[in-house]
Amino acid sequence: MRDLTNEILELIRRTSSSLPPDVEKRLKESIEKEEPGSAARGALETIMKNIELSRTNSTPICQDTGTPIFQVHYPVGWSTIQLKKQIRAAMEQATKKSYMRPNAVDAVYDKNTGNNLGGDDFPYIHFEETESEELTIELMLKGGGCENVGRQYSLPDNTLGAGRDLAGVRKVVLDAVQKAQGKGCAPGVLGVSIGGDRGSSYIKSKEVLLSEMGTRNSDPKLAELEERLTSESNEMGIGPMGFGGKTTVLDTKIIGLSRLPASYFVSVSYMCWAYRRRKMTVKGEEVTYD
């Protein structure tokens, strides 16, 4: 099997230092919505300068390089054991090259491993076999500040008057946005999953963030709720960094899962403006990035 360590290292470099064009475009568009001279506009302008600088110098967009989340789709015949080894080797090298900050801390002994390799769980890797002939590796870096403002609700939620339906889902998501204020480095993107158990619900609320900005759920009911949540979140006036302003949420992505008759979970993952997400595709000898 082919050794992809260097190609994965390049994927990590790109992810950490170069924001995807669709995210950058959204951020740029939101500048015009904020009052000239306002703190909100100033924040967005600084963010734009930072994006450019990081790309030019191959330095991390944010010093918190987050939890690395890998999604691997592999054609029949590839070894996941080998791929995992290569991903881990690339992660170690990326840390040496300062594309990644050492970010894996043993939670029991409070010790940073120094190389971004924790136990089996860090970096997080999900493998899925595919019938396609292309191998794809997607990487998302999920920061800690925004992870801390994520929330999970078990419906019904009486304090919010949220029942077990989409009307209830809407209420708890808006509540999560209000509680987050600017603390997840707003403007952010919401990943929402409806259903599942506590674990799968949170995982899916992150996986849904791997799609491009503006990608709507194929179910028109959910697509409409996505649009509505984005615009209603922005009515709250929290603004970039919580300075007050029009741009709090850039986009919302929802995924519906199966649930047990007894449970109805809604998980909200908040992704900060430093929405670092990249993909590499291996087709025969060729490796491409987007």
Partner: peptide, 9 residues
């Protein structure tokens, strides 16, 4: 309040 995430800048 500084701009969260604007590390390079």
């Amino acid at each position: 309040h500084a701009i969260g995430g604007a590390a390079s800048f």
